[in-house]
Nucleic acid binder design. Sequence first.
DNA 1: TTGAAAGCGGTACCAT
DNA 2: ATGGTACCGCTTTCAA
Lengths: 344, 344
Amino acid sequence: MSQPPKQSADHPVPTSTDVARLAGVSRATVSYVLNNTSAVRISEPTRRRVREAAEELGYVPHAAARSLRAGHSRMVLLPTSHVPVGPLYSRFLNEVQWALRALDYTVVQYGSLGLGADEAARAWAELRPVAVLSLGEIALSAHGVQVLKRSGAKAVITLGPQRVEGAHALVMDQRAIGSAAARHLLERGRRAIGVVVPAEPGLELFSRPRLAGVRRTVTTAGEASGARVEPLTMAYDEESAARLAAGWGALGLDAVYAYNDEYAQLLMRALQDAGVDVPGECAVVGADDLLLGKLLRPRLSTVHIELPTGREIAELVDRVVRDPDGEVERHDLMAAHTVPRESS
Amino acid sequence: MSQPPKQSADHPVPTSTDVARLAGVSRATVSYVLNNTSAVRISEPTRRRVREAAEELGYVPHAAARSLRAGHSRMVLLPTSHVPVGPLYSRFLNEVQWALRALDYTVVQYGSLGLGADEAARAWAELRPVAVLSLGEIALSAHGVQVLKRSGAKAVITLGPQRVEGAHALVMDQRAIGSAAARHLLERGRRAIGVVVPAEPGLELFSRPRLAGVRRTVTTAGEASGARVEPLTMAYDEESAARLAAGWGALGLDAVYAYNDEYAQLLMRALQDAGVDVPGECAVVGADDLLLGKLLRPRLSTVHIELPTGREIAELVDRVVRDPDGEVERHDLMAAHTVPRESS
DNA sequence: TTGAAAGCGGTACCAT
DNA sequence: ATGGTACCGCTTTCAA
């Protein structure tokens, strides 16, 4: 009693051995009963005794020990970044979780903040997940994929702007978004298109392809028209937006595609405060089709993104897990279409 | 070759035994080298051979096996719900992750969608985390806490509106937010205060105390003034807001506290569209002090919430893990103060 | 300086 | 219908 805190030496976590002892049976029997092993017949009285013993001790099986023995787990790793990823993706991510749970997978989000691609992959591999579903915000190198596969991952799936060697890729080509916005603006007769590129680090994976999409469309369709594209770096705060708006006249732009609806809202407000008429002098288009766009005045034109459903993703994961050596299917999804409202 | 897919029988995951064999040493030596065990001296040539063998095989240690042997892990479980929890909490949550990683904890977000309080606790317990940090959106019962502690969790910490028996509680009393809003509105001379209660399930844990806070302040301070409180259920979509705004006249309210800035934005827009003058006929106050509030016209008054920093939380976790039997400290944090702008 | 072996908590084969 | 036991991958005494 006078000794320092005995740690939890007095708090022994109950194991199946404890349950067996209390029930007066072997560990094997405990295992059979608690797992309802059908290949083996256990008498009803015994079952009851085991169950009661487990209950009384508050026994909870040790997942690590179990999967160590089994040689595999049903853990799907969902790496998360520190990037504020916006409401659209948050909802999508939750959908995926739901759907995976429904297929009896254990979903674990593992934050690998501040780790490089290869360190991160190694950290994930230590957990021996059966599948890794990278949402694309996360760096994943060809080498990383190899490490994961060697560590037993049946499925390594990237869901993002770019393919990764060796992984199943659900390519969500963010360029489609920029393209849709640009096409819309060109149709409206705009010729000098600004593109807001968020200053926030981590968003480049999204913003760069979106910008590239605008460029592609403008150079392709707009060649004869002499249209041009102007990248505009802007942080998600008022000063940055105000600064950009203050120098607006000098830019000579008649339209801007503002990355997403939130950045669009910020910039549109700054433009209005600076006396720039929207859409008269400058059209504004956002993306993601958030509710807030409809609440703004003028109502914000936006690019609606058609994400795959959580169930589709979950089923793909399941399919690949079951047949890892199947064809590495390449999916191109992410339909994007413009929702014209009043700001353009 | 004619047999069905041999699973990954041809893809044996390398173990420390494989490394040992390739390096021509024992498993023990491999462990010593790769963990830099200081209590033991291994010759430089041997170290090199081991390292090279590990590298060549792409060996990655098995976290589960390791912590099984060690008898403990450094996993902090962060249960996540399906509730769209808003930008403020997302940022906070990421901060906590950062800070915990910095203290060398492995942060795992585990979604227990669709599970009851006790089932969830059991599922968490199977992972044998050293700590569970429940963000309060999640149900956690007294029994659940007991299960977790019995399973070896040193720290079970709830961070939310209500205490849970047996757990360390960082009570973030959401009522303070409602109180701040009410006090502000009363000071401005408003007497009939509507309180928006989100229809979305899962938000009750936040919305109910916020409403209670308004009630408390109004009945206390406003007794003599004959002020009243009117709860208003509203979903986060335009129709619901429009419906509410359409019947506004009949409600006879001169102020509304709208749960948070996003709901406030939605309602304020609906009110304006319905011809209700803000703040003339009706004052509007939000909460969370989001950027969007400054962008609205009129600028949205809001309640700013002072959350603890991620580092504070992480250090608390660490402290409790080190000394689980220490005093169960009770913290009351969450300072809330009004940021008056133009809408009230 | 290195190796043999025990053991962490389960599961499943093979006896009994 | 049950029990004995080997083994999953790794760490850590204890000996050599």
